[in-house]
Simulated scan of single mutants.
Amino acid sequence: MHDLMRTTITSMEAAEWCGKEHSKLLRDIRNYISQLGEAKIGFSDFFNESTYVTEQNKTLPCFLVTKKGCEFIAHKMTGQRGTEFTARYINRFHEMENPKKQIPPTEHPGEVANLLKVLSNRMDKQGIAPYKSAEMVKMVCEQYGIQLPADFVKVPKYEQMSIVKFLEGSGKA
């Protein structure tokens, strides 16, 4: 069930995207399920019955809508609303399918610190500019969920000028 939650949206969200009342989308989904049943086509690849709890602590019906279910709904829609719904579900499922690669926050920050020290020493021995080491430290910290100040990496002015001059020389500035 947990995997299903990560690869579906709720019918409430779909109804909002469709510009429909949730009760009307529930009615439509139930009709789709009935028609699929008559054709002896399973509906669980598209829609899965579920419930949600309101702010008033009432349990109400809803559906978990898969990517295929969103495609099914989108094919029933036309015009501006159909276009908006399709764009929203495509964007949402791409986000779910391609999450940002992030290592879970560590319980052992000392290990991260040791890793950073080793990497920084190696970069120093190779003659790499100190701000490049700072960029590497920031990148590793972000992967481990460690927040650093936005101005942690400061590029020297001479480096900034050379980039600007390069861009001016290439006609891209």
Rank of each mutant, 00 (worst) to 15 (best):
residue 114 N to V: 09
residue 7 T to C: 07
residue 36 L to R: 10
residue 129 A to F: 01
residue 170 S to F: 09
residue 92 R to Q: 15
residue 156 P to D: 04
residue 130 P to M: 03
residue 111 E to T: 07
residue 116 L to K: 02
residue 15 A to F: 02
residue 9 I to N: 02
residue 76 K to S: 12
residue 6 R to M: 12
residue 162 S to C: 08
residue 20 K to W: 11
residue 32 Y to M: 15
residue 126 Q to T: 00
residue 30 R to P: 00
residue 79 G to H: 05
residue 123 M to P: 00
residue 64 L to D: 11
residue 58 K to R: 13
residue 41 I to S: 10
residue 24 K to L: 12
residue 150 A to C: 05
residue 66 T to D: 07
residue 138 K to I: 02
residue 103 I to Y: 14
residue 21 E to D: 10
residue 26 L to F: 01
residue 160 Q to K: 10
residue 40 K to I: 06
residue 173 A to K: 12
residue 105 P to A: 03
residue 65 V to P: 05
residue 145 G to A: 06
residue 165 K to F: 11
residue 51 T to E: 15
residue 97 E to W: 01
residue 91 N to R: 15
residue 113 A to V: 12
residue 148 L to G: 03
residue 64 L to F: 11
residue 112 V to D: 07
residue 65 V to H: 05
residue 73 I to Q: 04
residue 23 S to W: 03
residue 98 N to Q: 09
residue 27 R to F: 03
residue 145 G to D: 07
residue 69 G to A: 02
residue 91 N to L: 14
residue 34 S to Q: 12
residue 168 E to C: 15
residue 21 E to K: 15
residue 27 R to M: 09
residue 43 F to Y: 14
residue 141 C to R: 04
residue 95 E to V: 13
residue 29 I to P: 02
residue 136 M to G: 01
residue 53 V to E: 13
residue 144 Y to I: 01
residue 158 Y to K: 15
residue 100 K to Q: 08
residue 4 L to A: 09
residue 128 I to D: 01
residue 58 K to G: 00
residue 155 V to Y: 01
residue 160 Q to M: 13
residue 123 M to V: 00
residue 109 P to H: 02
residue 29 I to C: 02
residue 143 Q to V: 00
residue 133 S to D: 00
residue 24 K to Y: 04
residue 125 K to G: 14
residue 141 C to A: 09
residue 102 Q to N: 14
residue 156 P to Q: 04
residue 44 S to Y: 14
residue 43 F to K: 14
residue 109 P to K: 04
residue 14 A to Y: 06
residue 158 Y to I: 10
residue 44 S to R: 15
residue 142 E to C: 01
residue 105 P to I: 05
residue 119 L to F: 11
residue 143 Q to C: 02
residue 165 K to Y: 12
residue 109 P to M: 03
residue 10 T to S: 14
residue 162 S to P: 00
residue 157 K to N: 06
residue 154 K to R: 09
residue 127 G to T: 07
residue 156 P to A: 04
residue 15 A to K: 05
residue 88 R to H: 11
residue 117 K to Y: 13
residue 146 I to N: 06
residue 103 I to N: 12
residue 42 G to R: 09
residue 123 M to N: 08
residue 23 S to G: 06
residue 152 F to K: 07
residue 62 C to K: 10
residue 120 S to E: 10
residue 34 S to E: 12
residue 10 T to D: 12
residue 137 V to Y: 02
residue 98 N to D: 02
residue 90 I to Y: 07
residue 112 V to F: 07
residue 54 T to H: 00
residue 74 A to T: 05
residue 10 T to R: 08
residue 152 F to R: 08
residue 28 D to R: 12
residue 3 D to R: 13
residue 146 I to K: 11
residue 13 E to C: 02
residue 41 I to Y: 06
residue 126 Q to R: 10
residue 155 V to D: 03
residue 106 T to S: 15
residue 90 I to L: 10
residue 40 K to C: 06
residue 48 N to F: 10
residue 131 Y to G: 02
residue 83 T to R: 12
residue 152 F to N: 06
residue 143 Q to L: 11
residue 111 E to V: 08
residue 120 S to G: 07
residue 1 M to A: 15
residue 78 T to M: 08
residue 3 D to E: 14
residue 36 L to C: 02
